[in-house]
Design a protein around this nucleic acid. Structure first.
Length: 812
RNA sequence: GCGGCUGUGGUGAAAUGGUAGACACGCAUGCCUUAGGAGCAUGUGCAGCAAUGCGUGGGGGUUCGACUCCCUUCAGCCGCACCA
């Protein structure tokens, strides 16, 4: 029971005490079914085991935990698991640099980080821990890969791929940012290589449908942009004196009558097929364009260049002969790799035409006149001119009619193109899931038999990146004697680690089973993830891949839902000295803060800084205030309350603010407004401390208020609230309680503050009984010196009166 | 260039179209203390002794009333970008 004397709040004692009790009682162990409770799956994006949890991790994980804990108080059966995204390059780089085994490095880091997770006080169910670099996990990557291969969703193709010269491996399109590797920061180059791909483009259209997702609009927009749907027409241009065609893609078929040239990408296959590069100028131009880095080639500010070829082609609607150019502003990877040049109505074509003195023919006119002189391309809408039978139509209408005409005459067809490329999945590195494929001596692809899975990643001694997977050095791994097919060579590439994170949320919902990747009944209880939480940097990588993969698993019969993550919340970026916090830059260590103030203070401070989705520049300058606040709560609740004289008014007031506090907290916590929720709690505790000083409410009212505050505090500061809860004599853990309820009727105060404005400006205010009559109020107005001063000599032309709120006098 | 977000005290920030700056940090003064620290109390948007005036990046508008809605402009951050 409560002692009279003061005892001190020592965070580290309280925290380690409860952390070990929670561990012993396995309080966060989650069962798949709890009668009378709904399930809630709260998932934080699992971390890469880089070694230590820095303050950025704390900012990502502790508010997420507070929200999960809050959902428990809301009455849900909450699954909040954690694991490690354990494959990837840093382990290999550490192996090279420090001559340690990547597996050992990874597992040492995991052990270390799990201890640090415990210090955070997060409510993870560690019974479900998963580590993606274990054969039990990556076996299923391999099984899915084989099933995708059999369905044609995984394929091997020789093609241009992004190459990271530092990491010595290929990258997926999404992992290239501004021509640099998202991972190493190196300028990437294009290489021709046979590689494995996943056919994400088959799902482009379905991936565009995000109508069921409660995600930030920003992320949805980024995914839409990335998929980059564009509707238009592919139209074939006959080459003069040849049987071949040049196929072009355009979204502006209404400008077909204005085509005065055609431009091919330097890599366009027809260039070599028609030996256009026999021409010396053409050959030099192509050689030069190959020297340019991709970032230079796609720079919008660079001058457009090109070279004329020896061929011409025929405009299919006008039968005009037009020249064919090669220009490196045309990308081989988009559309058909060839564009029809319409200088009058496209900025790039205009610049190109001016440079090479090509004719500029206006076919869409802003004012209907047909002999315009343009000093720049006109890209807006207007009226067709110089367009044969389409003259006079609006270009929007003409677009339809010309498409129909072209389709009917078999000159081309309506086409949809996407910016999205297939997902390049193979990596020439060691520390990843081996791709479960063989090649025979004729290079035929033979999948590993399912009963042979997993293909174990062998121990390696040499990890130096050479452009080939280190697995090629392992003769024992490399060759396999197939009972029927004889000696086969294994695929030595490993999988992109985004494979691992594409389905890990399902494994958390069905851990432990080694026979199947997951049990359908179990994942159905938890899926889709109710609340996913993590950084926005994965908008077009992890989040897009996981959506794709979910649809693949659905089509393979594993799951029966369409989307993996129902709700998504992105926390903001925590910066340190204006730089993103990361292991590389400035791994701000929370350890000293935890030692000085305790986990609870660090957690509350991170949540109090501002809205979670905003982030900010890290500074610990305010944490002391949080620490003092927790000390005041400790002091207030661990010393005895003395009931002096119970005042009816104070009891009523307490009831009112208690109900209001609960209403605000529930609202705030539901919407991830941790900062305002904490502010509300501070106000409440400030109020309680005044009450305690005066002793004007009953003992039991006081006790109820304390409990209310503690329960509201418990998701944010789980340790101190548990300790005080326990000191107060409660037997069950505070984390097994429910949120207090509030009564709308008790929110009502009997009085209100009337705002009195003159011309919309506050001039006076007065506290009045609710529903005071307008006449009463006028009486007050007539007596108010402040009001009199402002209306003296003026005429009241209007009174705006809102009952129980405000009176605005409009004077002239 | 296109799209999105954000601009509020010395600082982090708060405000269903109705008291701008809640809640904190910091600072100031006082109490306590041998002292430092901690703690407690009071104050703290700016200018002014005050009355009062001004004040949410700038300009305009709607409204009795605008941080909030509309138009426009500037700045910062993020994303996309020769996408045909």
């Amino acid at each position: 029971m409560l002692k009279e004397e003061h005892n001190t709040y020592i965070p580290n004692e309280v925290e380690s005490k409860w952390q070990s009790i929670w561990k012993e009682t396995d309080i966060y162990k989650t069962s798949d079914n709890v009668s009378s409770k709904k399930n809630w799956y709260a998932l934080s994006m699992f971390p890469y085991p880089s070694g230590d949890l820095h303050i950025g991790h704390w900012f990502a994980f502790t508010p997420a935990d507070a929200h999960a804990r809050f959902q428990r108080l809301e009455g849900y059966n909450v699954l909040h698991p954690q694991g490690f995204d354990a494959f990837g390059l840093p382990a290999e780089n550490a192996a090279i640099k420090r001559n340690i085994n990547p597996k050992k490095w990874t597992f040492d880091n995991i052990n270390n980080m799990q201890k640090q997770f415990d210090i955070m006080g997060n409510s993870y169910d560690w019974n479900r821990k998963l580590i993606t670099c274990t054969p039990e996990y990556y076996k299923w990557n391999q099984k899915f890969f084989i099933e995708m291969y059999k369905k044609g969703l995984a394929y091997r193709k020789n093609g241009p791929v992004w190459w990271d010269p530092i990491d010595q491996t290929t990258l997926a399109n999404e992992q290239v940012v501004d021509g640099k590797s998202e991972r190493s920061g190196a300028d990437v180059i294009k290489k021709m290589m046979p590689q494995w791909y996943f056919k994400i483009t088959d799902y482009a259209e379905e991936l565009l449908d995000m109508s069921t997702l409660e995600w930030p609009e920003k992320i949805k927009q980024m995914q839409r942009n990335w998929i980059g749907k564009s509707e238009g027409v592919t139209i074939d241009f006959k080459i003069e004196n040849h049987t071949k065609n040049i196929s072009t893609f355009t979204t502006r078929i209404d400008t077909i009558y204005g085509v005065t040239f055609v431009v091919l990408a330097p890599e366009h296959p027809i260039v070599t097929r028609l030996s256009l590069d026999k021409n010396k100028d053409v050959k030099n131009y192509i050689l030069n364009s190959q020297k340019l880095s991709e970032i230079d080639r796609t720079s919008t500010t660079r001058e457009k260049t090109g070279v004329q070829t020896d061929i011409n082609c025929i405009n299919p609607v006008t039968n005009e002969k037009i020249p064919v150019f090669i220009g490196d502003y045309v990308l081989a990877s988009y559309g058909t790799g060839a564009v029809m040049g319409v200088p009058a109505h496209d900025d790039r074509d205009y610049i190109f035409a001016k440079k090479y003195s090509l004719p500029i023919k206006v076919v869409v006119s802003p004012d209907g006149s047909s002999d315009l002189e343009l000093d720049h391309a006109f890209t807006g809408n207007g009226t067709q001119v110089n367009s044969a039978e389409f003259n006079g139509l609006s270009n929007i209408e003409a677009k339809q009619k010309i498409s129909d005409l072209i389709q009917n005459r078999n000159l081309g067809k309506k086409t949809i193109t996407y910016h999205l490329r297939d997902w390049l999945i193979s990596r020439q590195r060691y520390w990843g899931t081996p791709i479960p494929m063989f090649y025979d001596k004729n290079n035929n692809i033979i999948p590993v038999e399912e009963h042979e899975l997993p293909v174990i990643l062998p121990d390696a001694k040499e990890f130096k990146p050479t452009g080939q997977s280190p697995l090629t050095l392992d003769e024992k791994f490399l060759y396999y004697n197939h009972p029927k097919l004889g000696k086969l060579k294994r695929e030595t590439d490993t999988m992109d680690t985004f494979m691992d994170s594409s389905w890990y949320h399902l494994k958390f919902a069905s851990p432990g089973n080694l026979e199947v990747p997951f049990e359908k009944e179990k994942i159905d209880k938890w899926s889709p993830v109710d609340q996913y939480m993590g950084g926005a940097e994965h908008a077009v990588m992890h989040l897009l891949y996981a959506r794709f993969f979910n649809k693949v698993l659905r089509d393979l019969g594993y799951v029966n839902f369409d989307e993996p993550y129902k709700r998504l919340f992105n926390q903001g970026v925590m910066l340190a000295r204006h730089m993103k916090i990361s292991k590389r830059n400035n791994p701000l260590n929370p350890q000293p803060l935890v030692e000085k103030y305790g986990t609870d203070s660090v957690r509350a401070y991170l949540m109090f800084l501002g809205p979670w989705d905003r982030g900010g520049d890290w500074s610990d300058s305010g944490i002391n205030g949080i620490y003092r606040w927790l000390n005041r709560i400790w002091e207030m609740m661990t010393t005895k309350y003395h009931e002096k004289e119970v005042l009816d008014l104070d009891s009523k007031n307490l009831s009112q603010i208690s109900n209001q506090t609960t209403k605000d907290i529930l609202n705030g916590m539901r919407n991830f407004r941790f900062n305002t929720s904490i502010a509300t709690l501070m106000e409440y505790s400030n109020n309680l401390s005044k009450i305690k000083k005066n002793g004007t409410v009953s003992n039991s009212d006081w006790l109820d208020a304390c409990k209310r505050l503690l329960i509201h505090l418990s998701p944010i500061c789980p340790h101190i609230s548990e300790e005080i809860w326990n000191i107060m004599g409660n037997k069950n853990s505070i984390h097994l309680q429910s949120n207090p309820s509030y009564n709308e009727e008790l929110l009502e105060k009997s009085t209100y503050i009337l705002i009195i404005q003159v011309n919309g400006k506050l001039r006076d205010q007065v506290e009045l009984e609710k529903n005071t009559s307008k006449e009463e109020i006028k009486k007050f107005l007539n007596n108010s010196e402040k009001i009199k001063k402002h209306i003296a000599g003026k005429k009241i032309v209007k009174e705006i009166y809102i009952e129980n709120k405000l009176m605005n006098l409009v004077v002239k």
